[in-house]
């Protein structure tokens, strides 16, 4: 079978396929950016409870923290709006070194 077009960026289709195969899946989407954040609004990261990941919401700086939040959303079903930036203590911990700020919406695929 041929790959869907634009497959590299088509995180949602990957997430939907995982969901259809019985995985518990959350999708994180960049909703706003300021400064030099590496991925534009609309960039997505899909995470499964079993630990699979596809896509990205940053240059790799906050994926770990987002995946952790995704696990909570998978458990609770409650979406979250996460705020990462240089003024945010958490961001220092996870290292958003580019100096940008991003908001990331995390939701479960039900």
């Amino acid at each position: 079978m041929s790959q869907p077009l634009g497959e590299v960026e088509d995180v949602l289709s990957t997430a939907a396929a995982w969901r259809a195969a019985g995985e518990l899946v959350a999708v994180a989407t960049v909703t706003e950016t300021w400064g030099s954040s590496p991925r534009p609004a609309g960039s997505q990261l899909a995470v499964t409870k079993s630990g699979r990941m596809a896509g990205s919401v940053s240059g790799g700086c906050i994926e770990g923290a987002v995946a952790e939040a995704a696990m909570k959303t998978i458990e609770s079903g409650v979406p979250q709006l996460l705020d990462f930036g240089v003024t945010h203590e958490r961001a220092w911990e996870v290292g958003l070194a580019c100096g940008g700020k991003v908001k990331v919406f995390v939701e479960k695929l039900s």
Partner: peptide
């Protein structure tokens, strides 16, 4: 994202119909 929205979105994309998924924040 519920199944209904996801299915409608996938259908629009398969039909190459431009659509916007609107999400109210933070709810």
């Amino acid at each position: 994202m519920n199944q209904e929205i996801l299915a409608a979105l996938e259908q629009a994309r398969a039909a190459k119909r431009p659509v916007v998924l609107a999400t109210a924040l933070p709810g």
